[in-house]
Amino acid sequence: MVPPVIKGFKPYGASDAEKKDPVILLFEEYESLKLCDYEMKNHNQASLIMQVSRPTFTRIYAQARIKIAKALTEGRQIVIEGGKVYFDSDWYKCNSCGCYFNHTNKPALVEECPLCGSENVKEVDSDEAGRRIGNKDDICICNKCGYELEHKLGKPCASEICPNCNSRMKRKSANKL
């Protein structure tokens, strides 16, 4: 399954939208919505693709709709992230032609896109796609003054404001310390 092309949605026309907590749409909820309402599959077909039981699929799908309805009605942002997903390692993305590819020839390094030959390739790492699967040791950090705050699960660091200089905070992963 291809990761979503965007990280979320922002409402426009409401000045207070950024102050409200965003709605967090999990990857599996996004996928269920895509399979059902974009690819027009029925619940049974979609549950087979996602390798969950049909009732479980229906539950995930119902949750997706509840969250989107909430975001639309209350004018909240939607952030697509996390959830119980398994990320395959060794996937790369070419920024030139936009394709994704995996790496079979292990010892060799990936230097170019197998399709267009561009050297502008990037590993699709957990930082990009599975960003916040929930390492509770992570911290939010202010880029300006370096102020650190314990990260709260489910709350994007960008919604935290640094108490010293009032700028937005960013994520600092515990693994990369």
Binding site: V2, G98, C99, H103, T104, N105, L115, C116, G117
Partner: peptide, 23 residues
């Protein structure tokens, strides 16, 4: 076998072959 996911919708077989040839 390497998998390449190319999902930009409108591409024809010829486009892709040209990409490989240009490479």
């Amino acid at each position: 076998i390497q998998m390449i996911i190319f999902n930009s919708g409108e591409n024809t077989v010829d486009d892709i072959i040209n990409l490989i040839k240009n490479k």
